[in-house]
Amino acid sequence: MFQIRIHGRGGQGVVTAAETLSIAAFLENRFAQAFPSFGSERTGAPVVAFCRIDEREIRLREPVLKPDALIIQDPTLLHQVDVFSGLAPDGYILINTTRSFDALGVGEFVRGFHATHLCTVPASELARKHVGRPVPNAALLGGFAAVSGRVSIDAVAEALRQKFSGAIAEGNVTAAREAYEHVRQEIKEASHAKAG
């Protein structure tokens, strides 16, 4: 079972991201479960959503306490919420930012992590460019497909088309695909650096 925890703020489409990811996994014939942290948080408040992906039926209903991957939709949460709780050193971290892990002040924490598991993506900028609003969730899902390889970018695109419609859907798909390429480039650079 692969478990994803998504941190963000109310209004950033955190819950939608988890749901869309579960649809993408479903489209690839996997079992998936997505659920919010069950609050009634208003716009701007910290929000958590969860997604589990497995090859068999998922029965577990506890929150994701030991995530295999973290998606951070808002880097300002890094020092407000214990976002890294339960994350193992072989876990994946994807942050919506234009800055580096070091610049965000979490470089020390991720020292032992696989370099190719640590990615950033300017998701808000991509969303503003392609959707017209800085809602980073779709771009981050594209980035997640690249960094984790757990779902294909095509499945993410199809899931986005199920969740959204018309121009918004297409804008989100474009943002996701661009984020996907961005992260793939990042990973390539990281593995080169490692090799060198």
Binding site: A18, E19, S22, I23, F26, F31, A32, Q33, A34, F35, P36, F38, E57, I58, R61
Partner: peptide
């Protein structure tokens, strides 16, 4: 409530 009502699953 929430655990099922708000959960996406197959």
């Amino acid at each position: 409530g929430f655990i099922l009502t708000h959960a996406y699953e197959r």
